[in-house]
Design a protein around this nucleic acid. Structure first.
Lengths: 263, 263
DNA sequence: CGTGCCAGGTGCCTT
DNA sequence: AAGGCACTTGGCACG
């Protein structure tokens, strides 16, 4: 770990080079201009910003406010540093698509380099997937007697979240949204319908599963005979929990009856 | 500006509190766990991370790699710090939607606080806009004799990028894409067509303007009689440059002929 | 405030 | 590479 307060440009460039070589993380605070050129282009004039360069070749330039960086570069960039006209230039070039981020610093308040030890696994309790899992495990969440035939089923314009048959033999097509379902969700489902046909003498029942409906979509849904079944992430998680517990119990019972061998 | 290397928890908390109070930016490197709960939830175990808290109430937790933060909170959070069980807890609560980010640090490598002076304006050279500007300035880029009537014209499902009349009096509807135009662009244009009618005895000519076409869209375009006019960002920028130069020349000439007064 | 739409979206997956 | 789509998407404009 290195910490420099108000380093000279040469000193900063040296430390920066060493750190990037060693694939360490670098954070700097400097007065700088930033320009980007690639898929589009951008420019920002003089100002003090936090600059982060990571060992995997990505860059973040943050201003004093806002969640998002004002400029950035994704992983996999090649770095290049140079001193020119009393300024420290840092270029981060991404090969494909070709785009270039250039940072020109004229006064460096601060520079530090780190080697972060971090082996932990990140666990996201993702929402739409949990809802889908819950429906697959417990189709009764949607309605009694529903049988799931397939999920992520490919149709021409995309993938049907859940595909099944109801107790009357009608085809059921489910589109899941974790957020209040808006016009986009309806449109998506309508698209799928064009490519799905029911069994002889049966219907196709499109169903949107979401915590709630956005305001303007009810008319369209009625016109297209799309049903709505409310389901929250919360409820889905509870269902999965219960499932897991009963599965464990079943497993335990099984093991009690016929202890498994060590493999 | 404050820079602390390996501060104690109490010292860190004090400095943190002062900085947040003063709406300064804080960067820390610490061994920590992070948990998030709100729209969904997440957890990550012990590891060293870069933590950034900004004066507008947003948080970033960055690992040693990846462009994206592993955890975060958008602007507008309320911060809360506490020492508990030999750990420094930082909570960032966002009121609406209610979500909570909790960072528990047990060893702080480093903490610094800054007040970034940055008044610069960020300028994005958005490409689609540049392409549109170029077409408005020089309709001949599309074809000889095109006259532009309107742009960002409102029709029921959205906005027509450019709307005009060709040399034969046919209505021209242009959809601009900065990337290779795919099925989405075609669909969008088809939507607009439903709400546009040509002049008496004339046609409506839908045109997609983009650097190129995606693979599968040609059949649809032929079926819907949609034309394609290739135009790159590059070419658009050149056109605008030329325009600007000739405008400047015209301005200079004007000034030469009739010098302006000082205002 | 909710809803819709754009972004240098990003990331992940499949063909 | 291209297409499809979710994301703690974030962000802005607008009714």
């Amino acid at each position: 770990m290195v910490v420099l307060v108000s380093p000279g440009l040469d000193e900063a460039r040296l430390e920066l080079g060493k750190a990037l070589e060693a694939r360490m993380m670098v954070t700097m605070v400097a007065n700088c201009t930033v320009s980007y050129s690639g898929r589009t282009g951008s420019d920002i004039g003089e100002g003090e910003r936090l600059i982060v360069l990571k060992g995997d070749g990505c860059v973040l330039v943050h201003r004093g406010r806002d969640y998002q960086p004002v400029n950035w570069q994704p992983s996999g960039c090649v770095f290049q540093t140079r001193i020119e006209g009393g300024r420290l230039l840092v270029k981060a070039v991404r090969p494909s698509p070709l785009e270039t981020l250039t940072i020109e610093m004229d006064r460096i308040e601060f520079l530090s380099t780190f080697n972060l030890k971090d082996e932990a696994e990140f666990i996201l309790h993702s929402s739409e997937e949990e809802m889908q899992k819950a429906i697959l495990a417990e189709p009764d969440l949607i309605e009694q007697g529903l049988r799931v035939i397939d999920f992520e089923k490919k149709v021409a314009p995309g993938f049907v979240d859940v595909y099944g048959v109801d107790s009357q033999g009608n085809t059921v097509v489910i589109e899941i949204k974790k957020d209040p379902a808006g016009a986009a969700a309806v449109k998506q489902l309508v698209e799928y319908l064009k490519y799905l046909s029911p069994a002889e003498g049966k219907k196709v029942r499109p169903i949107i599963v979401a915590p709630s409906l956005a305001k303007g979509v009810l008319p369209t849904m009625e016109k297209m005979k799309i049903e709505f079944k409310p389901l929250t992430l919360q409820k889905s998680l509870e269902t999965l929990q219960k499932r897991m517990k009963s599965d464990q119990k079943a497993l335990k019972g099984w093991l009690g009856d016929a202890p498994s061998e060590k493999s």
